[in-house]
Design a protein around this nucleic acid. Sequence first.
DNA 1: CGCGTGATTGAAAAGCATCAACCCAAGTGG
DNA 2: CCACTTGGGTTGATGCTTTTCAATCACGCG
Lengths: 237, 237
Amino acid sequence: MTTPNAFIRKLQGFGPLGADDRQWLESITSTPNVFAADEDLVREGDNPEVVHVMLDGFAARYKLTAEGRRQIFAYLVPGDFCDLHIAVLKRLDHSITTLTSCKIVRLPSKIIREITAQRPELTRALWWSSLVDEAILREWLVNIGQRRAEPRIAHLLCELHVRLNAVGLTDDGSFELPFTQEELADTMALSTVHINRTLKELREEGLATWRSGRIIIPDMERLKEYSGFNPSYLHIR
Amino acid sequence: MTTPNAFIRKLQGFGPLGADDRQWLESITSTPNVFAADEDLVREGDNPEVVHVMLDGFAARYKLTAEGRRQIFAYLVPGDFCDLHIAVLKRLDHSITTLTSCKIVRLPSKIIREITAQRPELTRALWWSSLVDEAILREWLVNIGQRRAEPRIAHLLCELHVRLNAVGLTDDGSFELPFTQEELADTMALSTVHINRTLKELREEGLATWRSGRIIIPDMERLKEYSGFNPSYLHIR
DNA sequence: CGCGTGATTGAAAAGCATCAACCCAAGTGG
DNA sequence: CCACTTGGGTTGATGCTTTTCAATCACGCG
């Protein structure tokens, strides 16, 4: 049997999936579309007919303020469901953009009703994943609200390590993170200049290095300690 | 017929409820408990057997960092469901405390399974309310990440006005907000001193006044404009 | 080679935190 | 009835964190 894609692997993090559900997921996610970097998947105010599931690459939820400032409030990594909520909420209240080139499955949005009507186990797994997304959002608010730049970035790196590890995208204490410093700035609510200086600080402290789109963390335990990271909010088994 | 309680009124904001659902809700929410101010309803790490619905008063979701700093990331106002997620996630990843004396319904947590199994319309209404909570959380992240102290507080006041208005708790541009400045500080990710100065600023600008636990907004449109407030994320009808 | 995007660095200023006092009003107990 | 206490609000002074502005650097690409 072939290894399951990131979406299936992620949902199995909640609990075992029935063979039928699993096979069905395989079939509907077998033909992803390829998106370029910096493409909006959906835009604030849209009422779209399709939903998106990440299979490869990085995307982000964001909003622009009236003054043109951007806040990214979620990274979408392989396995993540991008827009489950449009099954219930009519209009989208935020936009989603790709950060890198991505493989993404597009599904007719009525598929959600199909799932909730006919696949109770899968519904529960999706509910779980959406609650974990919300828990991550809460933690980001704590992170941005309460931590200074250094531990703030360090905390994000710890989270990404855990999340990417769950879908097999880490190599020991190292993982791909092909973002620009501006994207990181819009995530961490800091200026690009300060991001740059803070990364230098982390590098000189030997906590984490970011070179050519790859993060290297020499001592994971030390970084967790430094940033006050506690993974329980990710609700991994 | 008596006027419905805040919970029912809020759920009707999603769409009309069947008479049966409504009657059932009336019956299970007819005997709230009274909680004093500053009492934890649930604590991080708990695996509780009961869930809570706010009928009167104010409560807050919060977390403490390792350094003892508190971040509040949601206000729970009358009508809000406090801990729907425990139906799926085993452990709570944050705590909830009352901010004022409260009337709160305590329900056995298995009631959620009962609802999802037998009351599809109500399930959908609860799903909607949980998605709106998430949308509010996203907006708070934007607010804290991107706005300076004055518009940040102003934005929160606009949101509270809309939310409290939806459950009949406003009087024109005025509403009860019986918090301390420290609680507001932990919400806005600012120090109490800076909250105090910023409130003074807003008062002197004629944007909003906070005296003896009541907010008075002379010109709602002006405050919305000032804070860049756009209520669409609240998904009111 | 020249161009553009992103990274880096320095200098100055803004925004906010912290520390420390002090005020004020509502209890509380003698 | 009043002195005392206490929790929260207010204000000033000072310093740190972060932003902004501006310049420079590095590198891939037509």
